[in-house]
Design a protein around this nucleic acid. Structure first.
Length: 266
DNA sequence: ATGGTCGTGTGACGA
């Protein structure tokens, strides 16, 4: 029996509205580390997760954004904001050392409508992310970035590419900025195991998108080379999108083989 | 072409 550490990421579209979903997911799927996005409120229910054996840490703001890490291992916080803009108050970034591995949880700006100030903010945020990840790479720190990237990489990652041509998630500049992250030597975890189309992580609440499987692949894991070599598998779990009152996103998960001194379960 | 759905916090706004 091979030991492994399971890491999942899920945009829950409000932790208050989805607390029971998150607890059910922890019970049924037993991730060791769960990264959450779009908490949508100041409060975070730390005690709820402590009661079932998880550490947790959240970066929140009123009404919008918000990210958290829930973990079986202790969480050592490294950063609560993406470097590069001291005036950026938005709760979109959390970086931590967990059992020796650098874990980065992001909620990358949506950027619509494009062009406009929201799209400028998205592109600037991606440039800041590039600069920061490059510094980690150049310091030889193994890391994993997970979360809602709000980037559709390829035609096969959306149901009707022509409809998305002018969208901030699919514009050439957006894809180029994402690919520049890959050019740092990072791996798109899902694409290490499958090239299949329609591996969606998001379905809009409107127009019966879920029923018609009109989704998007916008939640991703990027792995530095050392972590990529630890990866056993990566998949998208669509079952929570079918639960009552679901989030519009569903979790993506991967399994890593612990590699001393990283991710030892003791 | 338009409207269609959620969540926050209670009026728009973001997605």
């Amino acid at each position: 029996m091979e030991e492994s550490v399971k890491i999942s990421s899920w945009n829950v579209n409000s932790i208050k509205a989805r607390l029971d979903h998150v607890k059910r997911y922890l019970q049924e799927q037993e991730p060791d580390i769960l990264m959450l996005q779009e908490l949508k409120g100041l409060d975070f229910p730390y005690m709820e997760f402590e009661a079932i054996g998880y550490h947790s840490h959240a970066v929140t703001q009123k009404a919008y954004n918000g990210v958290a890490i829930i973990s079986r291992f202790p969480i050592n916080i490294v950063l609560e904001h993406l470097p590069g803009d001291k005036n950026d108050e938005q709760a979109r970034y959390l970086e931590a050392d967990i059992s020796g591995l650098r874990i980065i949880n992001i909620y990358l700006p949506n950027g619509n409508p494009a062009p406009g100030p929201k799209y400028d903010y998205k592109l600037a945020w991606m440039q800041r992310l590039y600069t920061h990840l490059k510094s980690l790479r150049d310091s030889n720190i193994p890391f994993l970035v997970g979360g809602d990237f709000n980037v559709i990489l390829d035609d096969k990652d959306c149901y009707n590419p022509e409809d998305w041509e002018k969208d901030a998630l699919f514009l050439p500049q957006t894809k180029a900025a994402f690919r520049s992250l890959l050019h740092l030597g990072l791996y798109d975890a899902l694409r290490m195991t499958s090239q299949a189309p329609e591996q969606y992580t998001f379905w809009d609440y409107q127009r019966g998108s879920w029923q018609n499987n009109e989704g998007l692949r916008i939640d991703h894991f990027l792995l530095s080379p050392f972590v990529a070599d630890m990866m056993q598998e990566c998949h998208i779990d669509t079952t929570p999108r079918n639960w009552d009152k679901p989030s519009d996103h569903t979790p993506i998960s991967l399994k890593l083989t612990p590699h001393p001194p990283f991710l030892q379960k003791s």
